[in-house]
């Protein structure tokens, strides 16, 4: 069987795809990869469907014994990846062989690293997804984070991966400790005074230690409600900025509950969620307002970048001859 074996699991390494879509009405959280961009590009680099399951490593990466011949790609936070003790490139397809050892260490830039395997990860789908929802012990590998000795099946025989696939350096994101993310106000912005909205949009908020896959609690100027902090429960999306009675915002992330009874002042737009996903405790964030129309135009640009990356990956590659690097473009004659 083609598989990988976990030698050291790292801090929190889980199997994630694009999440459990269509089950929120039953109260089932979506889960899925926190950083949509790094996750999808990792899959594209090894010729997978963009939404195939990958490993998501957090803060401290795993050490993995490779038990198949094929390809992997590593994207997201820089955890100084090594193959058999030699440094390897991120954001490229990397050829691996049975018996190789892949080792990641602590994140030196960003927080979450994605490892895609050509052909995908062969765990069963539960409610149409391979994503791990740890709080509900659901999906992924036995519903939990990976542990030492776990053997995870890899569908290497289905791989369409090719050698030397890469993305242009211009597309590789830099992960900073201070960021601006864009928000659309609402759905409950009318529960706040105009001053509170101004405060929210003009202050720096620090991510507290209570920040995980479910949500990020922020610390900064308090936001006061005019209509009270509680509402009759309604739906929550990825990026919802909840403000409970204590006045400090919480940004809801992939493992959020489906519904909640706190006011939501704004929603972080989906193309900026990868920025949030790569930040952790101690980092700071500012919020910038955009209209719904602007947010959708930003989304269209975001999707176009991913399409361009996909096109380039499918139609060009690089080869290395001693110290020289060649870029080959494939054109139909």
């Amino acid at each position: 069987m083609d598989m990988i074996k976990i030698i050291k699991p790292g801090l929190l390494t889980t199997i994630q795809d694009n999440g459990r879509i269509g089950f929120q009405r039953y109260g089932i959280p979506v889960a899925g990869a926190m950083d949509d961009f790094a996750f999808r590009v990792a899959n594209i680099l090894v010729g997978n469907d963009e939404h195939e399951a990958v490993l998501e490593a957090t803060f401290m990466g795993p050490i993995i014994e490779i038990g198949f011949d094929g390809f992997i790609a590593i994207t997201g936070a820089n955890m100084s990846p090594k193959l058999n003790e030699k440094n390897i490139h991120m954001w490229r397809s990397i050829e691996v062989h049975k018996g190789d050892q892949l080792s990641l260490s602590g994140a030196i830039e960003g927080l979450r690293t994605y490892i895609a395997f050509g052909g995908g990860i062969g765990v069963p789908e539960i409610m149409k997804s391979k994503s791990t929802y740890v709080r509900g012990s659901l999906g992924g590998y036995n519903g939990r984070k990976l542990m030492e000795g776990d053997e995870i099946p890899i569908d290497a025989s289905k791989s369409k991966a090719k050698v030397g696939r890469y993305i242009s350096p211009g597309y590789i994101p830099r992960y900073n400790n201070n960021n601006v993310v864009r928000v659309v106000l609402g759905p409950q912005d009318d529960h706040f005074s105009p001053e509170a909205i101004e405060t929210f949009l003009n202050s720096e908020y620090k991510i507290t230690a209570e920040a995980d896959r479910m949500g990020y609690r922020l610390e900064g100027p308090k936001l006061t409600h005019v209509k009270g902090p509680d509402i009759i429960s309604d739906g929550i999306v990825s990026g919802s900025v909840q403000v409970p009675g204590h006045g400090s915002p919480i940004v809801m992330m992939a493992d959020r509950q489906t519904t909640g009874g706190y006011t939501k002042i704004a929603t972080v737009i989906s193309p900026d969620l990868p920025i949030m996903a790569q930040m952790g405790p101690g980092d700071t964030v500012r919020f910038k307002k955009v209209s719904v129309e602007e947010s959708q135009n930003i989304l269209f640009e975001y999707e176009e970048i991913i399409s361009n990356i996909k096109y380039r990956v499918e139609n060009s590659f690089i080869i290395q001859e001693t110290d020289k690097l060649y870029n080959i473009t494939i054109k139909k004659l």
Binding site: G186, P187, V237, G239, S295, I298, L299
Partner: peptide, 14 residues
Amino acid sequence: LPAGDKSLIIEFGD
């Protein structure tokens, strides 16, 4: 009510 770039809420009452 808009809920970001990909969702909206249809609110029927309070």
